[in-house]
């Protein structure tokens, strides 16, 4: 029998309280809602549309930002320059500022009064109240997750590997796409998932930029304030389930690849 010392027991008990704190509200939410009600919600066109909008706005924003965030992460991982710490501070800024304030900042940037808003308006695009505006608000608050994860990924690659590739005649572009990017992809994908997830759950910034069309967090809030807890609950449960399915699937994809590699190693050994 394994002996457990009393200190470990105290630590486990304290940890269990935190776990309970996370599980209890979610379990309460699930248990208080009849299954039929959840099924009925899946037929609610407004709910389904809002879930699709939330998923596509967050995914689209994440994908678009990745095109710029990954090169920035590489530059930050591989170069030392004056003001680098300042740049790193700027990248973390969206995490620490209140999200309603972030929403106000994004709104100020994309409204028709701003230069950017006017330019977009000239080509017939109005970000305020548009899915693109929602994507921007979501991306603004969640981009640090992708940049920081990708930067950690690139930093973890020994510079010797990139030098070895150059020594074999590869130019910088080829080294980036054949060595750096493939070796950092797990970090990048992990950051991508985190950014996507953080975008999905955003409420404060999005509600200021676009109340309509409604993303699911806004719809939950609206159902709660207009009809009460009973009506908000099934929407919340459905959204949580959809998010869970996505994250589990994406995590599985990431881990499956690494397990395959590990398995190969064990067999060959």
């Amino acid at each position: 029998m394994v002996r457990t010392d009393s200190f470990s027991l105290v630590l486990s008990l304290l940890g269990a309280i935190i776990l309970l704190f996370i599980i209890a509200p979610l379990a309460g939410l699930l248990l208080d809602t009849p299954l039929a009600k959840i099924f009925e919600t899946t037929q609610d066109e407004q709910v389904v549309n809002s879930i699709w909008l939330t998923l596509s706005a967050s995914f689209g924003g994440t994908l678009f930002c990745a095109v710029f965030a990954i090169p920035l992460a590489y530059v930050l991982a591989r170069n030392e320059f004056t003001g680098k710490r300042f740049v790193l501070g700027i990248i973390d800024l969206p995490i620490v500022i209140p999200h309603s304030a972030a929403g106000i900042a994004v709104l100020g940037f994309i409204s028709r009064d701003s230069v950017f808003g006017q330019m977009a308006s000239n080509i017939g695009l109005d970000f305020v109240g548009h899915p693109f505006g929602i994507s921007m608000a979501m991306a603004f608050v969640s981009i640090p997750f992708l940049i920081n994860a990708a930067r950690d990924g690139f930093s973890s690659i020994p510079i010797r590997l990139e030098q070895a590739a150059k020594n074999l005649g590869a130019n910088s572009v080829r080294v980036f796409f054949t060595i750096s990017l493939p070796l950092a992809w797990r970090y990048i994908l992990s950051g991508f998932i985190m950014m996507f997830a953080r975008g999905l759950s955003e409420f404060g910034a999005v509600v200021i930029v676009a109340y309509h069309p409604m993303i699911t967090p806004v719809l939950i809030y609206e159902r709660y304030t207009s009809f009460g807890l009973k009506y908000a609950r099934p929407v919340a449960i459905l959204f949580i389930l959809v998010c869970l399915v996505f994250f589990i699937a994406l995590r599985f994809l990431v881990q499956n690849k690494s397990r395959q590699n590990q398995k190969k190693y064990l067999i060959k050994k």
């Binding site: 020994p158 010797r160 590997l161 030098q163 070895a164 590739a165 020594n167 060595i179 493939p182 070796l183």
Partner: peptide, 12 residues
């Protein structure tokens, strides 16, 4: 041609 001390074989 440079053969590094730690070989720098591409792990992927």
């Amino acid at each position: 041609g440079y053969v590094f001390q730690n070989h720098a074989v591409f792990p992927h």
